[in-house]
């Protein structure tokens, strides 16, 4: 049964991607991209990758789609006809595709438990990580403890994206009164429902943040969900009200605090006599030390991702307001 679901979902994904090539209306292309992202999240669940599905659904179908729509509001909705013929790209694509399919014939068959990828390294982590780190979620224990340095690098990459977007766009403070207020003035239903749901979404983000040790979840997903709550607030109530609730300067400070928190856990474990990001030295019992370390760094990651996603949305939103577009 799982095979049938897999086949059908992949076929739907292929049809969605194919249709994206031919559409000229960019709004429809971005919506199809949201559907594509959500379908791939479903496929990831079918392939037992629950953490990845969570992240793909929140990041791809949530933040990416919103940012692309924000860009579309500034650049315009229709794509013009290309001047080049499409024969050469089609040729290149066909040759590359044929080479890749010829390459996949050499790969081990899908799903067999004796594939080379499942030997040696993976069984070691599956068996030892509950004893060494003590968490049920093996993905979190590998991500936060065994490969904690890579996750620090990833957080810094997200922070660098914030710096890049702020250097390119900047967030403009609402000082002049010539730009009309954004937000949905006459949508009373949206006002009521949004006001009811935003605290619940933030609560859910906190649940995901701290529950990442026991089930799918963790810092990234939680940061993105919390940012989505504030993006909803901005869309319904307007950018200036959102600036007075969570200001851009505060978010920049928050983003740096998240990365600093992560790095200082590493430095603190060096101070305690271990290596950088060696959580076993944080408490007398090494497993308890691992738990402390993982909770604090996941908090750092969640804070940074929340601040970065919301800041990037503010930057895009200020640009859209500047163009006098509602």
């Amino acid at each position: 049964m799982g095979d049938l679901i897999d086949l059908v979902l992949l076929a739907m994904l292929a049809i969605t991607a194919l249709q994206m090539i031919f559409l000229k209306d960019l709004f429809a292309v971005v919506m199809l991209f949201g559907i594509f992202s959500f379908l791939s999240a479903l496929i990831f669940i079918n392939l037992d990758a629950v953490d990845v599905a969570f992240t793909e659904a929140s990041v791809g179908a949530g933040i990416s789609t919103v940012l692309m729509l924000g860009t579309l509001a500034i650049t315009g909705r229709k794509e013009k006809k290309s001047a080049h013929s499409s024969f050469l790209p089609l040729l290149v694509v066909c040759i590359t595709g044929a080479a890749l399919i010829y390459g996949t014939l050499d790969m081990p068959p899908f799903g067999h438990p004796n594939n080379p990828i499942h030997e040696h390294v993976a069984p070691r982590y599956i068996e030892e990580s509950p004893k060494e780190v003590g968490l049920p979620n093996m993905v979190t224990s590998v991500l936060a403890s065994y490969r904690g340095f890579d996750t620090l690098g990833e957080t810094v990459v997200v922070f660098a994206a914030l710096i890049g977007v702020l250097a390119l766009l900047g967030v403009r403070r609402q000082e002049e009164n010539d730009v009309p207020e954004s937000g949905f003035k006459a949508h009373h239903v949206l006002h009521v429902v949004a006001r009811f749901f935003i605290p619940l979404i933030i609560l859910f983000a906190l649940y995901v943040q701290f529950h990442g040790d026991f089930g799918p979840g963790g810092g990234f997903q939680a940061g993105v969900i919390a940012a989505a709550a504030f993006i909803l607030y901005t869309l319904v109530f307007g950018l200036s009200r959102s600036f007075s609730v969570v200001g851009p300067k505060f978010l920049q400070v928050l983003a740096s605090i998240g990365v600093l928190l992560y790095a200082s856990v590493g430095l603190f474990s060096m101070y305690k006599g271990g290596q950088f990001l060696d959580y076993s030295k944080l408490a007398t019992d090494p497993i308890v030390g691992q738990h402390y370390g993982i909770i604090v760094i996941e908090l750092g990651v969640g804070i940074t991702v929340f601040a970065v996603m919301l800041s990037i949305f503010y930057a895009f939103g200020s640009q859209a307001e500047r163009s006098n577009i509602q």
């Binding site: 799903g111 438990p113 509950p130 093996m138």
Partner: peptide, 11 residues
Amino acid sequence: GKVNGGTAPIL
């Protein structure tokens, strides 16, 4: 990474 008959990597 999928294993037939396996489940999500949560203990």
